[in-house]
């Protein structure tokens, strides 16, 4: 199968602290890949390296066909990224945010406006087109952030805890968006602390103390650890962690 991400022995050290410790894995094109781990396990750091926001201390890899160490700017053209923190411009409107990012990724004015209409209609959010983003409730902000991360139809989207602090209904809607994007061939790389969300993923990895301890489909992992739910699998693995929160 065609891999959109392959990394081998990827490592990030901050001084004497090894945040990410020789991780090796691959994500295939079109997959929803769950990237799990306790707080402080190194998920965000690993993801930031994959997006070109953070330089690996050692190890190698490629994302969307470009070398992680040398072609960071090329990678950025082909991915979308939604950070743990809401990071759209609160003093711009919904449409202005989408137009800004559409323009940045090189979409023509025409393409941008079509895309904005299409996304807002799909979200049933066309009425709020000219609302300032700062005035929206968190759930909507997160959905909007996802739309902005995928406005340029990237091959691969990184979502860092996209549903943190969001209510269960919005969470479900959010996953509908994710699955719809995946159905159109976008690869999803997502971190989460919700184990029910982990079940939605095609494959998941569980990081403990900067290393990947397990990587497989949810069903296989459950069977391997003799657990009924992903929650139990996660407990088993995350309890071994020596690092604190």
């Amino acid at each position: 199968m065609d891999n959109i991400i392959t990394v081998s022995n990827l490592t990030k050290q901050f001084g004497s602290f090894t945040a990410v410790d020789h991780i090796t894995f691959a994500v295939s094109r079109g997959e929803i890949f769950g990237f799990l781990g306790a707080n402080g396990a190194g998920k965000t750091t690993a993801m930031r390296m994959l997006c070109g926001l953070s330089k690996p201390t050692s190890g190698s890899g490629s994302v969307a066909g470009y070398d992680l160490r040398t072609q960071g700017e090329q990678i950025k053209r082909h991915i979308g990224y939604m950070s743990q923190r809401f990071s759209l411009y609160e003093d711009l409107t919904v449409a202005e945010n989408m137009e800004l990012y559409g323009g940045i990724y090189g979409l023509s004015r025409r393409e941008v406006s079509d895309r904005v209409d299409q996304l807002l209609t799909a979200l049933q959010f066309a009425d709020h087109r000219d609302d300032l983003v700062g005035s929206l409730p968190l759930g909507w902000k997160q959905k909007l952030a996802f739309m902005v991360a995928t406005v340029h139809r990237p091959e691969l989207v990184f979502l860092d805890e996209p549903t943190g602090g969001v209510d269960p209904i919005t969470r479900r809607q959010f996953w509908d968006l994710i699955r719809a994007a995946a159905a159109q061939g976008t690869t999803i790389f997502v971190t989460t602390h919700y184990m029910d969300e982990a079940e939605y993923c095609h494959r998941i990895s569980i990081m403990v103390d900067g290393q990947i301890r397990a990587l497989d489909t949810p069903a296989v992992l459950r069977a391997r650890y003799g657990a009924d739910t992903m929650e139990q699998v996660f407990y088993r693995l995350a309890r071994e962690a020596k690092r604190g929160d």
Partner: peptide, 9 residues
């Protein structure tokens, strides 16, 4: 917000 810009080209 600068981080969101930094992950774009």
């Amino acid at each position: 917000t600068i981080e969101q810009i930094n992950v774009t080209p």
